[in-house]
Amino acid sequence: MKLWIAFWNILLKDMRTYYLKPPNVSWGIIFPLAWTGMFFIRSDSGIESILTLLPGMVALSILFGTTSMLAVTVTFEKKNRSFERLLLAPIPFELLMLAKTSGAILFGVANGFVPVIMAAFLVDLSGIGWGSFVLTVFLIAVVSTFLGLFIAVAVSEVFEAQTFSNFFRFPMIFLCGLFFPIEKLPLFLKPLSYALPLTYGVDVLHGTVHGGHTMPFPLDFVILAAFCVGLFAMCLRNIRRRWIA
């Protein structure tokens, strides 16, 4: 059997059905735009502050874009039982879940570049290390997508997916160094920061955009990749336990 046909069509269906629908496209543009504007006005420090705000904006856009979409779409398909159709297909379970999450990963990557495109009109971005930047955007999208999947497996209603995902997302804005350096956090909160995957992605983004990273890039990448693998494995285990019981 040609597995790539199944993989490609699951991805294509999700893109057409969910991610490329006008409301979601506008969400993908308006959301980063609103956050960027809000932080830019609030920081009150002129155009040059864009470079320090950009890594946080990129991470935030990816985090909210992917977790919102995946948690809702998977919960929706589980509820109306169309997800069973995928489980009944002769596709290895791991490949099936990769196909199901690929759309959200691409959506997250696209969301991540919205603030970059907006910033490009205002400041010079030629100093950014694009190789590491793009790789990090991708890894943040992957890890956020799997976080969304983790949430989707844990809930049974669509509204629960939104509520539960905020439980993870909002603390991450403050704990992962998006806009406030981790060094300035109270000591008791720091271990929590280093237990969250976004911390490592944001560290690389700060490093590639304005050189403000605290850890070596290879270490950040290894930890981020480990989070991706670990979260995916945990999601697969939970799906098998809860949905194929």
Partner: peptide
């Protein structure tokens, strides 16, 4: 349990692609 947002034809084509 087919996909409510897809047409009848697209639903069948999608299910065939899964195989």
């Amino acid at each position: 349990n087919l996909y409510p947002e897809l047409t009848g034809f697209d639903n069948l084509c999608f299910c065939a692609a899964l195989y």
